[in-house]
Amino acid sequence: MQIVAALRQRLERLGAGVTSHVWRLGFASRFLAYLVVHSGTALRRFRLTIAEIYFAGVLSLIIILVSGLFVGMVLALQGYDTLQRFGASESLGVLVALSLVRELGPVVAGLLFASRAGSAITAEIGLMKATEQLSAMEMMAVDPVARVVAPRFWGGVISMPLLAALFSAMGIFGGYLVGVQLIGVDAGAFWSQMQAAVDLRNDIVNGIIKSVVFGVAVTWIAVFEGYDAPPTAEGVSRATTRTVVTSSLAILALDFVLTALMFTGGGHGQ
């Protein structure tokens, strides 16, 4: 009898937890809709959005470029090791390019963006809420969602694909450095096989689509968690952590869905 009661309590709590998460998702969706509808200010006074592109994009450049370079270099090292066993070392360029453009570029850049820019956005908005700056703005008849949140959202969405492209480009360069300069794969083969195998529409454009989707997801989560954070120090810090964790999981889950749609004969390939 004791066990049944305890079990029941666990189940109730689980149910309540699931319900509250679903409720929260609904709330977040309405927030996104409101944000998009009221993006007029962010677009008309583009200055505001430009400032946010700076904070989200430019300040993430270093980590993106350096990480891209290292990832590309490691890909070349690991890739060469396996490919040369099959005498396919000339396809190293293909391996590096496709891995980056299709997957690693959008995904890793997205994860890095979530932890650097996403957490910063959450912390900033959360702190503004905690110090009553958002309420003060409301009181001055200025909609804080339009003035503070929307520019950050669009700044993130615009920055993300650019960062992903730069990550992939740096990675390919890193792969070239290690593969051609260090290991000695033939440069001509490296580039020409790459060009033959990487298709603009199917690989590069799909990669860009992925990075746009990730950008929307990460920035949406970041601004929502910040706006919804309890106005205390602990609340803001927890919200920041939640942003990073939820964004990362969302990126990986969306990546699976998008990859399944795009790259496995789901469409007609053209």
Binding site: L166, A196, V198, I204
Partner: peptide, 11 residues
């Protein structure tokens, strides 16, 4: 970067 990917890397 995007241009680089499209031209040098892609077809």
């Amino acid at each position: 970067g995007l241009l680089f990917l499209a031209l040098k890397v892609g077809n």
